[in-house]
């Protein structure tokens, strides 16, 4: 179903920024890692209660 939205059989696009040359799929993965990292820092952990609080 996902393949119907994005053609995975075609050539990947590339982002050129100076000497940096990144494929769009790799860029998406890097951005996703940043997002997950930031969410992990700020999202409350379920079931964890600090001592002294209910």
């Amino acid at each position: 179903m996902f393949a119907a939205i994005i053609n995975l059989n075609g050539h990947a696009g590339y982002v050129h920024w100076g000497f940096i040359d990144l494929s769009v799929p790799n860029l998406i993965v890097i951005v996703a890692m940043f997002v997950v990292f930031l969410i992990a820092l700020v999202a409350p952990f379920p079931g964890h209660r600090r001592r002294g609080r209910s």
């Binding site: 990292f37 992990a40 820092l41 999202a43 952990f45 964890h48 001592r51």
Partner: peptide, 11 residues
């Protein structure tokens, strides 16, 4: 330890 109860520690 209680500080392990954080998403950053699960990776």
């Amino acid at each position: 330890p209680s500080y392990v109860a954080s998403w950053i520690y699960i990776f």
